[in-house]
Nucleic acid binder design. Structure first.
Lengths: 230, 230
DNA sequence: TGAATAGTGTCTTTCAGACAATATGCC
DNA sequence: GGCATATTGTCTGAAAGACACTATTCA
């Protein structure tokens, strides 16, 4: 087989002009009946005043995950979350300033972590229902669509939903997560049958009373890591 | 909600020290009863004389995909292939020279494209059965394992196997692809029932005679793009 | 006719999906 | 009792998996 010598062997890394590398974070949460994503308003050129994904440059001494978590904390103060690398977008010209390669991450936040922040004054960041996303800067529209597809498909064959619920929850809350993300109604009996048969949930033995009706059993996931099924 | 101002707004991109960005390519093919991966032998520090994934620096004016294809062509001369982004690895310290973030790609090559190259003299690149991979440079061992997992799972819910077969093929060849990658035997009747029911294959009407036995119908995929099922 | 691969059907079990009535607690 | 949510089982159809014999070609 004819083999060309590797270019990368012939030059030291320092001689190459280097692109910038950023992380962008898709922060999802569920509020009520809606899946929402966190966006920040850009203050400067390019795309001034456009909404964009929170993100920023990767520092030389942090991993990509650490960069994503750092950006997340800068925007929300939250840090204990589900984090998953989504995809890397790097077409030349996606940023008019310079060559920027961005590694996109998905983060899932529980609704109650969110409530800890509620009541503070609004900043330049805002939650948008994914069904009502404004025009976005750069190629962020494409990134969000890619992330939504990933989230929807992963919901069907993993326990990723634990990232959107507090530790203990009612089965009806879990079902709501599925319904909101998949954007369709599910049959209560079939949902419970299926989800319980996976063996990922355990009953806490406690019941939650939340109004003038029969109290619900609380469940929790028996694994904290992501698990695939099917 | 309290929001920290985005660091990325406060500085121009030029002030940041930039990591190097490379692509590494996992080139898979099937030869006989084995799944093989292309590796190149490093000629210089670091990891001199270790085998590594083919790869190199991303040029400023090419997309990540173009970089992967360019590296592939430099190593094999092949360019019409299935290409899929795998994952981005960027831990500090994964390359002792400098901060290097690498975007890994999976490439699938058909066995007959490979034969076009056979007979030429061997270079510093070599095909290794994935079951007998030597010690690899950098974190390439981890990357290869990640890629193998992706390949195996994607085989089960997509038509990705078209990347490993020539345009027309016998069902027994397709079954062999599945058996080699999944590393287990499949029942012939169930396999054919299942794969034909997906509606992704069409019979060419031609038969292939290849020895002292009944000739086999040739099939082809009716879509050239990747399709997901299940 | 022997060797080698191609091609085919049934049964069983499992799982998804449609579907409605009863239970419990608060007011 | 009225309201609101929780909890539970059956039937049906589809798909997965176990399993063995006949067909065709060439030497």
């Amino acid at each position: 087989m004819t083999i060309a010598r590797r270019d990368s062997e012939k030059y030291s890394a320092e001689k190459y002009e280097r692109p910038s590398v950023t992380v962008d974070v898709l922060v999802f949460t569920i509020v009520g009946d809606e899946l929402k994503i966190l966006l920040v308003k850009r203050a400067a050129w390019p795309f001034e005043n456009y909404w964009a994904l929170p993100g920023g440059f990767v520092q030389m001494n942090e991993s990509l995950e650490q960069a994503a978590i750092r950006e997340l904390r800068e925007e929300t103060g939250v840090s204990d979350v589900y984090l998953e690398q989504l995809y890397t977008f790097g077409d030349p010209g996606r940023d008019p300033r310079t060559r920027v390669i961005t590694v996109a991450y998905i983060v899932l936040i529980t609704a109650d972590a969110l409530e800890l922040k509620a009541g503070s004054d609004a900043g330049e960041a805002q939650w948008f229902p994914v069904k009502k996303i404004p025009a976005l800067a750069f190629d962020h529209q494409k990134i969000v669509e890619y992330g939504l597809n990933r989230l929807r498909s992963k919901l069907e064959y993993s326990n990723i939903s634990y990232g959107l619920l507090s530790t203990e929850f009612r089965l009806s809350e879990l079902q709501k997560v599925y319904e909101v993300i998949l954007d369709r109604q599910l049959d209560k009996r079939n949902f419970r049958k299926k989800i319980l048969s996976l063996g990922l949930l355990e009953a806490t033995g406690e019941k939650e009373i939340s109004g003038a009706h029969r109290p619900a059993m609380l469940y929790r996931f028996n694994k904290k890591e992501i698990v695939f099924f099917d």
